[in-house]
Design a protein around this nucleic acid. Structure first.
Lengths: 332, 332
DNA sequence: AGACTTTTTGGAATCGATTCCAATCAGTCT
DNA sequence: AGACTGATTGGAATCGATTCCAAAAAGTCT
């Protein structure tokens, strides 16, 4: 028993395919009697319109694809949730796929937008060069969240990473730290902006940032430990470390603690993202909270305008406000 | 400038649509000259076959959808990676969507299989009742991973949760614990199995499990803390707690430590999953490692057979072997 | 050269749902 | 009753890629 088609339904209901389709799409131009016959036939045959046929005819899929290097980032998954909830209100389904930082796989997934498998695309952490992102966003329905290119041609939602790093670094200084260090991620654009903010805050206070350790590969708990170990070999020791993510900060705290030093007594540590890790750490991490859920929602509004509106190509960047969350890792 | 179609390509290349399609699909029955003209036209028009038209005609999409309550579980994201890598080798694209435990949204996503938006489905943590999962797997290309129903009609890949819980509980007993407690998740099938294993190990040692705290909502760090707090009100105190996940175990350790007791000195704690949290915790967690990546790979093989093979409906369950990872939270 | 393969090609039919247009039906008004 | 309006309906055309079939082109052999 193959799949039932609109033809089958029409035959069983004793009406034409046009009428069936009208019932399916809630057209008012159908008599109550016909509607009843059709819904009966649909139920009886367990009929469901075939997506590909419908998509072909309507020229849209009501599906949106999100791409991220990996799915474990709490900020990304929260932003995706915000996006998905907003999208659902407009009838869109949101799906996400990890690229693993593999350019080829990313290309393949981006092609799903080009070939009409989906109506729109969200980029959380693109692997392709910035120029490619710009070109893509220029001609197709694409929106960036978290990691956004520095261009007015595309559209992106994020926080002001530079300012956030500036704020948290200033907090370190205000709580008495003078020999500042940072563990950052040079591979991400956001990482470079945070480095700028860190530098600016140090400069403003007349301090020379003592050390900048930049990961050029993984940026996780173990990387945090490894880089913190390097910090501990220094003389004099830094008295504060700003880390580009909570997970890295947790590794950093762990390494410092294991070495017999105290956080924040000997070295204060700050993270970024306000993920669960920040609360799991001992002491709990001072960090930056991102309004991830809202970022997702805003991103959908923009993407929606882009997909439906004719001239509605929203450009530029939107920065939502972050929040400094002070906890025990920088202040007793 | 609208999208180019095969017709356009055919016209530009000076051949028929049939020839264009043959080139597109690598048919050998095309002369070198024609092939060249066609590829030239394709490049010139920047042509890409429209997915919906192709899917309609071919009656398959080469897309697979995975569903999970949320994307943050490290085991699920690792299993999905294994699945995705295996799927990619066969030309399939794997996408994932979170259901947030919302039955309606889950239904909507499952409908994507019913209406041919995707060729297959992986269920990681279904919200629908077991009977529905069985019925679904009975008639459609569905495979379960991690949380699998207790039925031979469907197909699922997991570890033997009951045995794993048994093993880790026995480890607690062997390291000297006598007053056993457990913090489990009654809402998940795996949680109930782990409870069984815990009970069985206690019974085998002639011990009455002192306490069973069962979360009936969230099962995260904060739930771990909350439930551990309850444990600490007991008299006598348990001397070991088996937790249904590392995250919960981390919360448990934290609460115990904050209360001035020592882990494992006063109370030993064991987790489950061997996620990053297990290593981030102080002391590091004894836990159960799941071969998540392989589980995903195996799941794809089965789903592939189901999707392509005519009679190839693979049934039953496959249990891959877990591993007890002993760390400081149970043994100095 | 003529008969016969083999290779290559064009073009129509097909997949299933939607939509437009014309036709039919029912109802209203004079 | 006849003319007219509006509500329903049937059915063909359409979306774009694939595939099958017959026809044309190019070789092969005696």
């Amino acid at each position: 028993m193959a799949r039932a088609t609109v033809q089958d339904v029409a035959k069983t209901a004793g009406v034409s395919v046009g009428t069936v389709s009208r019932v399916l799409n809630g057209s008012p131009a159908v008599s109550a009697a016909s509607k009843e016959k059709v819904t009966g036939a649909i139920r009886k045959l367990n009929y469901r319109p075939l997506a590909s046929a419908r998509d072909l005819r309507r020229d849209r899929t009501m599906r949106i694809l999100a791409l991220a290097k990996n799915l474990n980032s709490p900020v990304i998954s929260e932003a995706f949730r915000g996006f998905g909830d907003a999208a659902a209100l407009s009838g869109y389904v949101s799906l996400i796929a990890p690229t693993s930082g593999d350019l080829e796989r990313e290309q393949q997934l981006v092609d799903m937008l080009r070939n009409g498998s989906v109506d729109g695309l969200i980029l959380f952490s693109p692997t392709m060069p910035d120029a490619d992102v710009e070109a893509l966003a220029e001609q197709l329905s694409v929106v960036q969240v978290c990691e956004i290119v520095d261009s007015e041609a595309a559209f992106g939602v994020s926080i002001d990473d530079r300012q956030a790093a500036f704020d948290i670094t200033r907090h370190l200084i205000e709580t008495g730290s003078r020999r500042l260090a940072m563990i950052g991620n040079r591979l991400a654009r956001s990482g470079r902006l945070r480095e700028e903010g860190f530098r600016a805050a140090a400069a403003e206070a007349g301090l020379a940032p003592e050390h900048l350790l930049l990961a050029d590969g993984e940026f996780d708990f173990h990387a945090g430990r490894r880089l913190a170990k390097e910090l501990l070999h220094l003389d004099p020791l830094p008295d504060a470390v700003f880390c580009g993510s909570d997970t890295v900060a947790a590794g950093c705290v762990r390494e410092i603690t294991d070495a017999g030093l105290r956080v924040p007594g000997d070295i204060a540590v700050a993270g970024f993202d306000d993920s669960v890790q920040a609360e799991m750490c001992v002491p709990e991490l001072t960090t930056i909270r991102q309004p991830a859920y809202e970022m997702g929602q805003v991103a959908f509004e923009a993407l929606f305008a882009r997909m439906t509106g004719p001239g509605g190509h929203r450009r530029g960047r939107i920065f939502l406000s972050h929040e400094l969350v002070v906890r025990g890792s920088t202040k007793d």
